[in-house]
Design a protein around this nucleic acid. Structure first.
Lengths: 232, 232
DNA sequence: CCCACTTTGTGCGTGGTTTCACAAGCACGT
DNA sequence: ACGTGCTTGTGAAACCACGCACAAAGTGGG
């Protein structure tokens, strides 16, 4: 009885679990940096800000990687989650729209922590094209197809104004980029099989405002820490 | 620990609905700009990228604001959603961490579209303090308490490096800021009653990578591609 | 006034997600 | 070898979200 099965999991990890795996991964990497060797579901859950039962169930979808009475081996779990998320291979990313946000993304070191390589920066503004941002020369949007093909780009990031986003998305789709991260405040229309995720700063603010208003209204319950006073 | 299960919602709107209201609102405002007076749930749902039954159910949580046989009056619905989200009042926002991302946020006009006013920019780096960004003078982080009080800030945005985020959050909480939007890649620990939302760029990328990998694996079909032996 | 047509609001079945609670499993000390 | 203590993995229950399908309610034409 030896043999660790190389592919214990079956296809079909719940979407909610997938969304949490990166959080676990980051918490684990912090533990790893601190030299921790093993961690219990309780401790890891607390670091990740979730319920421990949820964490165990999430991990159980990947396989049985824990040891009862002990916990999980940090390094091994890091590897398993990385592999599941596809971070053991490299992904090339193109960013379109090198305004304030695009620049921030290009310079955001956290991206490349593992697996992601920013391969191409593109913009439509001839005043921006040619500039050097994060060590890359900004190319013209017209060369998108070329940039995608030459660099093997498989993930496209849209950081353009709302008006251009759909057009950029269309061109990404046409050259075969099937994963798009959209920062523009529009709903993108893409064919089946293309995966779009949206990050919308003002939507997050609006959700915060909703809850803040509810707190301020005749709530009856003040924030635990403060003395119920709340001015608007 | 925290034992406060009895408070999912008081008289309220499901969380999933709240998260979609801003999307509807944006679609409605686009219609308004185009001069459209009324819209059917079908049309609005399509513009917002959701199912029309879901949209109707979402709106039904706000009240009965539609007219059967006709649809919804755009302007009226804009007002109702705005009110529900708390956008009829003004929210003052402070941004801490004026690096690339903080700068992008400060300049992001979309914020102020309605209801949100960026009242204060703060940073710890003396090379940044004093600079003018988006028409505001960047203040020193030490003046956070003062800035919050003087401007009536009720929403705090954290765009600092990971290492400083928890500290900034603590200070926000201490001066009574109970709504925090966190861009730093850490899980913030805050007392009950404080609302934290997190936007994490690299997590989004990792989720995309997961799906991209799954597409690549079982590309044509999914079934018995590699169903070998499996022992545990 | 009545009828045909349109669109909302919602009851209900279905499926996914969270949480509890506990048996099963492993390590370690005696 | 065996019991003790701890932690995982997972049934089962509760909860929530989604979408179908249809009755209710309004509009407009004849």
């Amino acid at each position: 009885m030896i043999s660790r099965p190389p592919r214990p999991r079956e296809r079909g990890i719940p979407e909610a679990t997938v969304a949490r795996l990166p959080v676990y991964l980051r918490a684990l990497q912090a533990l790893e940096d601190r030299g921790t060797l093993t961690v219990s579901s309780e401790a890891l859950a607390s670091a990740a800000g979730v319920n421990s039962a949820k964490l165990r169930k999430d991990l159980s979808h990947l396989g049985s990687y824990g040891t009862r009475g002990v916990g999980y081996e940090v390094e091994y779990l890091v590897y398993q989650i990385s592999r599941e998320l596809g971070l053991t291979q490299d992904w090339s990313v193109a960013i379109v729209g090198i305004g304030n946000l695009g620049r921030a993304l290009a310079n955001y070191g956290g991206f490349g922590t593992r697996g992601f390589r920013i391969a191409s920066l593109l913009d439509a503004d001839s005043g921006v094209v040619g500039q050097s941002v994060a060590g890359l020369r900004v190319g013209h949007i017209d060369s998108l197809e070329e940039a995608v093909r030459d660099n093997g780009v498989s993930i496209g990031v849209i950081a353009t104004p709302a008006g251009s986003a759909q057009h950029v998305a269309n061109r990404f789709v046409e050259v075969g980029v099937a994963s798009i991260l959209n920062f523009a405040p529009v709903v993108l229309d893409v064919p089946d099989g293309v995966d779009v995720r949206k990050v919308d700063l003002s939507i997050e603010l609006q959700i915060l405002a909703f809850h803040a208003q509810r707190r301020a209204d005749g709530d009856g319950r003040a924030p635990a820490d403060r003395t119920g006073l709340e001015l608007t």
